[in-house]
Amino acid sequence: MLAKIYQPARSAMTSGQANTKSWVLEYAPESRRTIDPLMGWTSSDDMNGQVKLRFDSREAAVEYAERHRIAFQVLEPKKRRPTIRPRGYGDNFATERRAPWTH
């Protein structure tokens, strides 16, 4: 039973960084999903596929995995560089403006 420890990426629908500071321990699937022939639902015999644990730090997630003897793999996050542009939109509301802003 292999688990992966990673820091989730931000949602593609937002520009914010919410829910990207925590670390997640998630089990890799052990069995394939099957399709129910009558209803078309997917199911699996793997109960660990439903487990997703969140931790405040990478060290806490690694310590939890070691304490419970879970084989794990740590996936390092790719850091984004900030997209702060000089003289951007926020500068329209700066207090040190010399002339009033108009269209």
Score class of each variant (00 low, 15 high):
Phe72Val: 02
Leu38Met: 07
His103Lys: 12
Pro86Thr: 11
Glu96Gln: 07
Asp36Gln: 04
Ala28Cys: 14
Ser44Trp: 00
Ala3Gly: 07
Gly16Arg: 10
Leu2Gly: 01
Trp41Arg: 11
Lys4Thr: 13
Lys21Gly: 15
Glu66Val: 08
Thr95Ile: 12
Val24Arg: 08
Thr34Asp: 02
Gln50Tyr: 06
Met1Tyr: 05
Arg33Trp: 13
Trp101Leu: 12
Ala71Val: 10
Thr102Lys: 08
Asp36Ser: 06
Thr42Asp: 11
Ala3Phe: 00
Gln7Cys: 10
Arg32Ala: 15
Val74Ser: 10
Ala65Met: 02
Thr95Asp: 06
Val24Lys: 06
Gly49Phe: 00
Glu63Asn: 11
Asn92Phe: 00
Thr34Ile: 10
Arg97Ile: 10
Ser15Trp: 04
Thr20His: 02
Ile35Tyr: 01
Ala65His: 03
Arg33Met: 13
Glu96Ser: 14
Val62Gly: 02
Leu38Pro: 00
Ala94Tyr: 00
Gly40Gln: 06
Lys79Arg: 11
Ala65Asp: 03
Ala9Cys: 11
Val51Gly: 03
Arg67Gln: 09
Ser15Ile: 11
Gln50Val: 07
Leu25Gln: 01
Ala94Thr: 09
Thr42Ala: 05
Ala65Pro: 07
Gly88Val: 02
Glu59Thr: 12
Arg87Asn: 15
Asn19Lys: 12
Met13Glu: 14
Leu75Asp: 11
Thr42Trp: 03
Ala12Leu: 14
Ala28Tyr: 00
Asp46Glu: 08
Asp46Arg: 04
Ser22His: 15
Pro29Trp: 05
Pro37Gly: 03
Leu2Ala: 07
Ser15Gln: 08
Ala9Glu: 13
Glu59Phe: 01
Ala60Cys: 03
Trp41Ser: 14
Asp56Met: 06
Leu53Gly: 03
Met1Trp: 02
Val74Asn: 05
Gly49Ala: 12
Met1Thr: 14
